[in-house]
Structure formats: C-alpha cells, structure tokens
C-alpha cells in the first residue's frame, strides 16, 4: 500500500537530517523510552549495570545492532515473505550479534568475560526485534536506521544512569576497568591505608552492598519511572 502511494506522489526533496529524523532520534530518549515506556529490552542488560564500563560497552553494542539490523531489514523488507519474517529478522540480528561478540572477544577480552551470556542475549533483546516489527518493516532504510540508533541510545541512556548510581554507591568508583578509572568515594585517607581494609567504615563512606545486588537495578528503574511519570503525566498508567 505504502509502495503505490510513494510512486504516485512526487516527493519534495527532503534534507538528509530533517525534522522527522530529529524526532525519531529524540523521542526514545524521553517520551517513548524503550525501557521505561515501551518496556522492551529490560531483559538482557540489567545484570550488567553494576558497573559503568561494561554497561557502556553493552550500550554501544545495542546501538550498533539496533541501528544496523533496522537498516538491513528495511533494505530487504519488500522481499521478505510475511510468514517467515520473524526468522529472517532473527537471522539478521544473530549475525550482527555474532560480529559484536567476535570483535569483543578479540579486542576487549576482560569485558567479554564479564558480559558472558548477556552479549548473546542482545538477540532476544525485545527492543531490537520490536523496532524491526514496528518501524523498519514499514519504513525506508535511512529513517529506520535513525530510529534504530535513537532507540539504542534511549536504552543506553537508562543503562548508564542506572550503572552510574549503582557503581558510585555500591563500589565507590566510576568507570572501573576502563582507562578513565577513578575512585570517588569509599576511599580511606592515606594514613589509614596500612591498617584498614579499603571501603571499611573508617573511610567516610562504606560501600552499600545492596547496590551491587541485582535487586537494586529494579528499584532504581522503578524510581526512574516514578520520576519520569511525575514530570510527564501523559505517560501515567490508568489501569
């Protein structure tokens, strides 16, 4: 249906990065956030948010997979028979995820060990599949690509917010394991270091072990949703 319409109407030349693209990129960050509004893609990544660096790698991986799977699916969307579209989409996603996995294994082995199965689980990350079904199957390649990137970013944003909170309060550090590693709180003053274990109550902050537990991620996301909906009443659940 959309095909015939496109042929009849002479489209005005659109800028490569016009209003529509901007909206596609901006919407997932707040009004249509994949995690807090669409509730997609919560599955695979919450367990990695106890530290910022792995979450950052995960977010980049999801942005990559989401963007390019949207682009590829959109390119072949008219050739896919509707009965097997799920399988085709899954194969495209699985191929991209395999690329990500092998790249990480080669260049970032420690992170690869840390993320273990969660890299593979990007395949079943509902946000990737959800965007393919909802957007890429019906839209042109460039827009689908921008939409994929936007949703990947919206997802990554939540991931990073949760990870920053959890790492600061749970471990007292930030970006641990990356070149930017810094120790923020929980450090003991120099004259205690020889006698006291790091992060003990002699420092001015004792690590909060609750934040390292998986449950903390659920609380933080719950509270994030609360904050977001208080500022944005149109998102509130009526039921």
């Amino acid at each position: 249906m959309a095909e015939t319409l496109e042929k009849n109407v002479v489209e005005p030349k659109e800028p490569l990065f016009g209003k529509v693209e901007k909206k596609l990129l901006k919407d997932p960050l707040n009004d249509n956030n994949p995690i807090t509004v669409q509730v997609l893609g919560v599955c695979s990544a919450l367990a990695v948010t106890s530290m910022v660096y792995p979450s950052f790698v995960m977010a980049v991986a999801v942005v990559f997979v989401c963007g390019f799977s949207s682009l590829l699916t959109s390119l072949v969307r008219n050739k896919i028979p509707p009965q097997v579209r799920m399988i085709v989409q899954l194969v495209i996603i699985a191929t991209l995820v395999t690329i990500v996995e092998l790249t990480l294994k080669r260049f970032q082995y420690p992170i690869y060990r840390q993320l273990t199965v969660y890299i593979g689980l990007i395949i079943t990350n509902c946000i990737v599949m959800g965007r393919l079904e909802a957007f890429a199957m019906a839209n042109k390649p460039w827009r689908s690509f921008v939409d994929g990137i936007g949703n990947g970013l919206g997802y990554g944003a939540i991931l990073l917010i949760v990870a920053v909170i959890r790492e600061i309060f749970g471990k007292g550090s930030l970006f641990a394991g990356s070149p930017l590693e810094m120790k923020l709180i929980g450090t003991t003053p120099d004259y205690f270091i020889n006698t006291m274990a790091e992060g003990s109550w002699f420092g001015w902050y004792a690590n909060n072990n609750l934040m390292v537990l998986p449950a903390a991620a659920m609380f933080i996301i719950g509270v994030l949703i609360w904050i977001q909906r208080s500022y944005n009443p149109k998102l509130v659940d009526i039921s």
Binding site: A215, A216, M218, F219, W226
Partner: peptide, 23 residues
C-alpha cells in the same frame, strides 16, 4: 499507590523486593 508509580513502576519495585526475598 502514587499515580506516577502505578503499574509498571510498582512492578519493578516489587520484582526487586521478590529478588531480595529469593536471595
């Protein structure tokens, strides 16, 4: 439940509490 927390937000917090219980 506070309106903004209704539904999804509460489900997340409940899951967190259940996670602690299961621990």
């Amino acid at each position: 439940v506070p309106p903004a927390l209704r539904g999804l937000g509460m489900a997340f917090i409940l899951t967190g509490l259940m996670g602690i219980a299961f621990m």
